[in-house]
Nucleic acid binder design. Structure first.
Lengths: 111, 111
DNA sequence: GGTGATGAGTTTCCATTGGGTACTGTTGGG
DNA sequence: CCCAACAGTACCCAATGGAAACTCATCACC
């Protein structure tokens, strides 16, 4: 089994690092509803700054999880969408998000 | 639904940030097999430095996911274990890890 | 009684990221 | 002529991430 996230040299490590990240998990989840524009993602991912959203999306694009399509319109329109791989990655991330939401009351020092 | 990870003000955000993290995900997974000592965790989480392991475990402890028990022996023994909450958190994290492992070949530019 | 091993960390330092705020560029509408 | 809308950049600072070396306590050995 060379595909082991516990092995430092395995590329799995990098992919886990990519997905196991607050903003990636939220961004991919937001895209499950269908293609979204930059501004739409920005308002759904409350509190994210444009810079961080840009780098998050670019990283996801670079690794084949989302696509970025530019429409030569005015005002400029850019749509982000999930690739099949990205769509598949949503399932475990959704589990994680919903687990957090439904167990948040069990955490000490959390409302 | 005040428990929404997409809301910037919700404590869910902080907990998602805690769990959606490479080292947290690996550390909790390593503890599923039972209590582990610092050195054991260090060798299972290949490539982690002692400092980073310390802060990771301390954060997990602070938020009620793991316990830290010190045995006054020589040489010193310290055991980390999952709390019930930590054990429950393992399920979604395990999904994520295994998803990555079984889909790693689909990623571009990954072996 | 000095030497070294063991275990669990600290300390120090540097490089990389995370993040906020302000700015840019394009073009259509008033 | 200027402003608004959209999708970002640019610039800056603060917080992590991470490698390497050091600490501290005690016991076993020579």
């Amino acid at each position: 089994m060379p595909d082991d996230v516990y092995a430092a040299c395995c590329p799995c490590r990098d992919m886990l690092d990519l997905l196991a990240n607050k903003w990636s998990a939220l961004a991919l989840g937001a895209l499950e509803d269908g293609p979204q524009r930059f501004g739409s993602l920005r308002s759904r991912l409350q509190g994210i700054s444009p810079k961080v959203l840009t780098v998050t999306l670019r990283k996801l694009e670079e690794h084949g999880l989302v696509t970025r399509k530019v429409f030569a319109e005015v005002p400029l329109r850019v749509e982000y969408d999930l690739t099949p791989l990205g769509r598949d990655a949503c399932a475990p991330l959704a589990h994680l998000r919903t687990w957090v939401e439904s167990n948040i009351h069990r955490f000490p020092a959390a409302a």
